[in-house]
Amino acid sequence: MSPDQRVRPAHPHVIDVGETGLRETNRALQASDGTGRFLLTDPRGAHALAVGLASPDEVVIDGPTGYYTAGMNDGAHVTVNGNVGVGVAENMMSGTVRVNGSASQSAGATAHGGLLVISGDAGARCGISMKGVDIVVGGSIGHMSCFMGQAGRLVVLGDAGDALGDSLYEVHIYVRGRVASLGADCVEKDLRPEHHAELAELLDRAGVTDVTTDEFRRYGSARTLYTFDVDNAAAY
């Protein structure tokens, strides 16, 4: 169920994070039944904020947050108006996390599902070991992004750093800008009609309207490292 289909209070429940403290803030969010609307103020770069949410509540965080914001999210719709630290939405299962700002390294690490949207840049290792999540980055991503990416889709409107998709499994990677270099076993692939459709759908869900799918290139696994071959030993 998407957030707008639920009956939610007209005004959000406001929690001053600085005053309330991390434990009580998370406890309040975790206790909600999925119909809640929360506005978190004064986060002061707190780590582990809005983690472990398991219901489709709406949470808006006004201000910058630290490590692991919305970590292991399983259904909630979390928006951060500000920059986020390392590992935003790490191991997300479902729901959405939107960052109106930039993210540090390991954004969406190991996430299994849901949608992560970052309006600005994401640092190194964006989507590392991703396992099914969809990630859309408005800006650029850092080096070693999608390292050992297993499943899901990664869309980057800006540039990608070095060693994109190193040791990649089955993630579909779409990059609009320049790719500094591809990692071991990551290759450029054709953007076939089904990929245009997939990409268009992702851009739409992320709320990106001003670009077309023709502007992207697709990257994926060459699958040469799937079983050991002595001729590939140099890649290990």
Partner: peptide
């Protein structure tokens, strides 16, 4: 979340 029958190579450092 891996393809069946491939050699799984795991990371030695945590991702985040």
């Amino acid at each position: 979340t891996l393809p069946t029958g491939i050699d799984q190579r795991s990371a030695c450092r945590h991702p985040d």
